[in-house]
Simulated scan of single mutants.
Amino acid sequence: MKLSRKVFIAAAMLMASSLVFAQEKETSVESEYLNDVDGDIIMTLAESDDYDNKLVALQYLQSALEEGNTSDAVVQALDRLAGEGITTQSRTNGRLANNFPEIRREACKLMAKIPTEHTKNTLVSIAVADNEPMVIAAAVRSLGEIGINNNDETVEAIRFANKRNRILNPTSSLALEVLNAFEMLADSTEDRKGMISEITYITTDYHYVTPVRQKAYKLLKSLSSTNEKKSDSDAK
């Protein structure tokens, strides 16, 4: 009698665990299916020639990322939108028809939520190729937040982007994002000479507003202090 009761309890527990496993598996499959559907919708909207459709794609992307969806389709859609009019061009009668800097800017901002080598490379490409300061600023901000700086590649790209901009069209908002990114990437930078050189230019360039130049000066002092401490430590 006792044995039969134990067998019954064990069977009940086994059935319950099987049911839970089946539900979890069903939920996982359903979630994967929905991610695929979302990805298809987003890519269709992103590839559309219509500006409003691209705005809707950005809204879908933001929701997808907030839900943890970083599927290949989501990444591809962000790549597409971040390069809209730069790496992907559509022309009508020889005229560029998809130069949408606002779309590129928002896509670059969202890329910070996917901190991967691929995303970093895309943002580096946008930072050095785009001509719009607001797009470059968004790419630079995301690069700082992602924090990947192998062989100082990211810092050098940011330095190049700001150097080109300050020669042609010095912009305080971009310079501020450059300083913020340099600050976030300083610890991972092996050779700070290029970084310090660019900060020095910002400090002394009166095309930039006073608060930006003051921030550059403070960052320069902070980096100099860090370098001195590091030199003293190495000497010991």
Rank of each mutant, 00 (worst) to 15 (best):
F100I: 01
A82M: 13
M43A: 09
F8T: 11
H207Y: 10
D50Y: 08
E117P: 05
K236L: 15
S90W: 02
V178P: 04
Y217K: 12
A97N: 10
N93L: 12
Y51K: 13
A235T: 02
D52R: 06
V212M: 06
S142E: 04
E26M: 09
R104V: 10
L58C: 12
L179T: 04
T119D: 08
V135I: 02
A12R: 12
N150S: 15
R164G: 03
Q89L: 08
G85A: 11
P170T: 07
E47G: 03
E156M: 12
A97T: 06
K54S: 04
A82E: 11
L78T: 03
V124K: 12
T92P: 00
K54T: 00
K230G: 00
S71N: 07
I103V: 14
K215H: 08
H207E: 07
N169H: 14
S63E: 09
T44K: 15
R141W: 01
D232L: 15
A181F: 03
L81T: 08
D52P: 03
Q62H: 13
V212A: 06
L219Q: 11
A22F: 13
M15D: 01
S173F: 00
P170H: 05
Y33D: 05
I86N: 05
E66I: 05
E84P: 02
I148G: 06
N35A: 12
K54Y: 04
L81R: 11
A107L: 09
E66P: 03
N99P: 00
E102M: 13
A139K: 07
S224W: 10
Y60L: 05
L223Q: 12
A129D: 13
T200C: 02
V212H: 01
D72E: 14
R105F: 00
S90K: 15
V135S: 01
T87P: 03
D234G: 02
S225K: 15
S90T: 11
L185I: 04
Q23L: 12
G39R: 07
L110R: 11
M43E: 08
A97Q: 04
L61Q: 02
K25N: 11
V155G: 01
A64H: 10
Y217I: 04
E26L: 08
G144S: 09
Y208M: 05
R192W: 02
A73G: 04
G68Q: 07
A216I: 02
N227E: 13
L123N: 03
S31I: 02
S225R: 13
A46T: 02
V178G: 00
A175D: 00
E198N: 06
L174P: 07
V209Y: 05
F160C: 00
E156S: 13
A181I: 05
N165P: 03
A175M: 04
M43L: 14
L143A: 03
A139M: 10
V7M: 10
K54V: 03
S188L: 02
E132C: 03
L223T: 01
V128C: 08
D234A: 14
S188V: 04
Y60W: 13
S48Y: 07
N165S: 15
A64Q: 06
K6D: 03
E198L: 04
D79Y: 13
F182W: 05
T189K: 09
L34S: 05
